[in-house]
Design a protein around this nucleic acid. Structure first.
Lengths: 253, 253
DNA sequence: TCATGCCGGTTCACTATTATCACCAGTAGT
DNA sequence: ACTACTGGTGATAATAGTGAACCGGCATGA
C-alpha cells in the first residue's frame, strides 16, 4: 500500500501557508518522481480530493474533502465538544484559549476563543505552529511515538526566541517531564512576551489528537495566574479526552 | 494508481447515514478482498484519515479530514461564498434555500438557510439526496459526464413518489432539457407536496460542483412564485459560479 | 536571434508491488 | 458441539507502479 501512502502524503503537503502547488514543485517537495506525482494527483482528482486550476495549472485540495469533514463532524463532533470547553477556559482564566489539532506531524489551531482583554494573545484559524516550540505541539509530541519524535529532531530544532530549546538531549528531557506531569508550561519558547499552558487531548485509542491551551502575555503570567490556568486547562483537556472516548483518571494534579 | 483509487473509494463509503464500518462490512460494500480492505485502511489510518474504534473495532473517518477541509476552506472559501447568496435567496423568495455539493457521485446539502415561515421545507446538514430525484441532483447530473449519467442509470431509478421519473429514456430527455435551460423545476419528484428549483454551480474548470436550490410546499408554488424563485435561483447560481472562477454569460433567461 | 532552463505533461522498458485464498482465533446462537 | 459469523494474517500467484528520457511551450538573458 505504498502507493496509497504516497497519495495521502501528497494531501498532507497542502497547508494554509501553501494551499497550491505546481506539478514540479510538489514533486520536489515530496521527493517523488514528476510522473508518479502526476499519476497520484490524477487519481485524487478523479475522486474530487484534488482539483486543478485550469489557467495556472496549479493543484489544490478539492471539494471532496469538505464532504469528508462534514461526515466526520456529524458522526463524531469535534467542534461541538471543544468549543464549550474553550468558552469555559476563557471565562475562568480571562485569557485566550485554543484547540490545536495534531495531524500528519503538523499542529494547527482549529478552535479559538479569545480573551476580552484588550492586551490579549490572538490566534489565526488554522495557523500552523512549530511542533517543538509551541506548548500544544510539545504536549502532543510528548505522548506521540518515538518515530514522530525522531522525525522532528532529525530536521533540527529551529530557534524562534532566545528561550527556544534547540538541543536534542534537553528537548527529550523536557518531553519526559511533560509525560510525567501531563502538561507543559511554555515560557516564551515560541514568541517573545507570550506564555502558554497546554494539556493533551486523547482519543479512544489513547493517542494524542491535539491539545487545549491557554496563552497570556508574560506580564500577566504570575504564579497565581499560572496555577489557575494550569488546573483549568488540565481539567478541560481531561474532559475533552473523555468526550472523545479516552479513559482518563483525571486526578493527576 | 488503481490502489489509490481503491483507497479513496473506501473513504467515499463513509457517509452521514453510515459513518462507521466493520472490516467485513466494508469489504462487502466495496467488493474488495477483506485482506486488501484492511491494508488500505491501515494506510489511511497511518495518515489519520481513518481511525478505528478500539472497543468495537469499527472504522470511521479520522481527524485528518478536518485539517484538509480547513485548508481548503481558508484557501478557496466555499461557505463564505455560498452563505450570503442563500440568505439573499431566502430574503427574496421567502422559502428555504440550500446549497448541495456534488462529490463522488453523491449529492449532499452543505449549506442551509431556512424560510421564516412556519410551513417551510426543512433540510438536514449533510443529508444525502437521491441524485435522480432531487432538483439539485438533476441539474448537477445534467452537466456531468456521460459516464456519471450512465452510472446513475445502471442502478435503476428508484421511485420516491408517483411523480419520480423512473424511465431511462424519459430521464435522459429531462437532462437534455436541463442542459438547454440551465435549471430544473422539480414537482414532487422526491417528496410529496415539495417542489423546488435548482441551478448548477460550476467551478473554474466548468465542471458542476454543486447546486443552489429553493424549495417550497406545492401550495405556495404558483406560477408567480415559480417565476420569482427561478430568476433568483438562476442568478444566485451564476454569481456563485463566477465566485468559483467559472465564466458564465449570465443572460440565459 | 539563438541558447538556456524551467514548466506541465507523456512514453515505455524495467521493476516493484498488490491480490487472493486458505487459514486462525474468538464469539454468539442453536 | 456445531454453525456462522467476526477481525485479522501470511505466502504465493498475478498484477501493478516506476522513472529516465523526451516533448512542446514559454520566459529570461546573452
Amino acid at each position: 500500500m505504498q502507493t496509497v501512502d504516497k497519495a495521502v502524503e501528497l494531501l498532507g503537503y497542502f497547508s494554509e501557508r501553501q494551499p497550491e502547488f505546481g506539478l514540479s514543485e510538489l514533486a520536489r517537495t515530496s521527493g517523488f518522481d514528476k510522473a508518479s506525482t502526476r499519476r497520484l494527483l490524477l487519481a485524487l482528482i478523479k475522486h474530487d480530493y484534488i482539483e486543478q486550476n485550469p489557467t495556472t495549472k496549479a493543484y489544490r485540495l478539492g471539494i471532496g474533502v469538505l464532504r469528508l469533514a462534514r461526515v466526520r463532524e456529524t458522526s463524531t463532533p469535534t467542534e461541538a465538544i471543544v468549543n464549550p470547553l474553550l468558552q469555559k477556559l476563557v471565562a475562568i482564566t480571562g485569557e485566550s484559549a485554543h484547540f490545536s489539532l495534531l495531524s500528519g506531524g503538523r499542529i494547527s489551531s482549529v478552535g479559538i476563543v479569545e480573551s476580552s482583554k484588550s492586551n490579549r494573545i490572538s490566534f489565526v484559524q488554522g495557523e500552523e505552529g512549530a511542533i517543538h516550540a509551541t506548548s500544544s505541539g510539545i504536549v502532543c509530541l510528548a505522548f506521540s511515538s518515538d518515530e514522530s519524535i525522531n522525525e522532528v529532531l532529525k530536521d533540527g530544532l529551529e530557534a524562534f526566541t532566545e528561550h527556544t530549546i534547540t538541543d536534542a538531549r534537553q528537548f527529550r528531557k523536557m518531553l519526559q517531564a511533560v509525560r510525567n506531569e501531563g502538561y507543559h508550561i511554555n515560557h516564551e519558547l515560541y514568541e517573545k512576551d507570550v506564555c502558554s499552558i497546554a494539556a493533551p487531548v486523547f482519543n479512544q485509542a489513547m493517542r494524542p489528537i491535539g491539545a487545549l491551551a491557554v496563552a497570556a502575555p508574560t506580564s500577566r503570567f504570575g504564579s497565581g495566574a499560572k496555577k489557575q490556568i494550569l488546573t483549568a486547562v488540565y481539567e478541560a483537556a481531561a474532559a475533552a479526552s473523555r468526550a472523545f472516548g479516552a479513559e482518563i483518571d483525571g486526578s493527576k494534579l
